[in-house]
């Protein structure tokens, strides 16, 4: 049966009728399938949550052990049955390459299947498993950076920009705005990759998730909480990572001679960088850029594509030009938190 018969968009989010389950719901529901741990996708208060083990652990770090009454951890590729025994819905998770634990959600019912890719990217990222191209009848894609103006440069180039600035302004404390989940760890990885071996200093809000990544085997070298540095003046010439909200906040005033950088895919647009008051915009994204979105749609090769949050008009236009049926699922509520981009 075509997924349009059994998937609908409700106030609480995308709903699968025969499974009685929501995908990344916006409100507390009885059963939630969660693609990944970002706050606009994984919200607290559901009765039962189904996701990868890493995503469940991220939710526990953020919302406490009681983040849900019941939690089901699935491995990538493992089948899980929802709905009636006589009329089951099969749920399978596949890697999405977005952040640690991120998954595409595949639902199969009465001979047809749909994949919700959630947020995803195609760039190499050692902090999570790479996106798995998986066949389906309907592919549901995000559209965060779905305009041809968005082409993300290689991670290496952007980290190099930061190191170059450190050479030019050796007396200035380089404060880099990073989202706590995913972006922070990717920047750390990029720094180590380019041979930056000094300690990196972290805002308190970043510590727990870095510790969780470490439990999952990701080592980022020496990390020191800013709160443990007795003489803040000694941070001149060092790299400090902090969540974006702390960049122009009271917290950053104690740092010496700050040069503000911001790591986000939005930094490609000048006005966005200005808005963040970032003197050093670093274009580092955990989403697909325009060419990667098109490449993914082509490789997945589903006969029909639905587009969720973002700049859906452009993507739908382009997908239709490629001869694939496309429609917009207007979803409010995503992209309104600090974590997107």
């Amino acid at each position: 049966m075509h997924p349009k018969e059994w998937i609908s968009v409700r106030d609480a989010g995308i709903y699968c009728h025969p499974a009685d389950a929501y995908i990344d719901p916006l409100e507390p529901v009885s059963r939630a399938i969660i693609t990944h741990g970002h706050a606009d996708h994984a919200r607290p208060g559901h009765h039962c949550v189904v996701s990868t083990k890493a995503t469940l652990d991220i939710m526990r770090v953020r919302y406490g052990e009681e983040m849900a009454k019941d939690a089901v951890a699935l491995k990538y590729g493992e089948d899980y049955q929802l709905g009636e025994d006589a009329d089951p819905v099969k749920l399978t998770l596949y890697p999405a390459g977005h952040i640690l634990g991120s998954a595409q959600v595949k639902l199969s019912y009465r001979g047809n299947s749909i994949i919700f890719a959630g947020d995803y990217k195609r760039r190499h990222d050692p902090t999570c498993e790479p996106f798995a191209v998986t066949p389906c009848d309907v592919f549901v894609t995000e559209a965060t950076f779905a305009l041809p103006v968005f082409t993300h440069p290689p991670l290496k180039d952007e980290i190099q920009k930061l190191l170059h600035s450190l050479d030019t302004f050796p007396e200035r404390c380089h404060l880099v705005g990073v989202y706590a989940l995913g972006k922070c760890q990717r920047v750390l990885y990029g720094l180590r990759q380019l041979g930056y071996s000094k300690p990196v200093y972290l805002h308190g809000a970043l510590l727990n998730l870095c510790a969780l990544y470490r439990e999952y085997g990701h080592n980022f070298g020496e990390l020191i909480p800013v709160s443990e540095v007795a003489n803040k003046k000694s941070l001149a010439g060092e790299i400090v990572l902090a969540p974006p909200s702390a960049l122009n906040d009271r917290w950053s005033r104690k740092l010496p001679n700050v040069r503000t950088a911001m790591a986000s895919g939005w930094m490609q647009i000048r006005a966005r960088s200005k808005q963040r008051q970032a003197e050093l915009p670093l274009i580092i994204s955990d989403h697909c850029d325009w060419p990667e979105l098109l490449r993914t749609v082509k490789e997945v090769d589903a006969p029909e594509v639905w587009v969720t949050h973002g700049r859906e008009e452009a993507l739908i236009h382009q997908i239709e030009k490629m001869g694939i049926r496309a429609k917009a699922l207007s979803l409010l509520g995503y992209e309104d938190t600090e974590e997107t981009g």
């Binding site: 041809p148 103006v149 968005f150 452009a314 382009q318």
Partner: peptide, 21 residues
């Protein structure tokens, strides 16, 4: 493509930057 240009321009809000990208 003119549609993609129009949407991009609408988003970026400024001709030189739109074309630059």
């Amino acid at each position: 493509d003119p549609t993609l240009f129009a949407l991009s321009y609408d988003y970026v809000g400024e001709m030189s930057e739109t074309v630059a990208h």
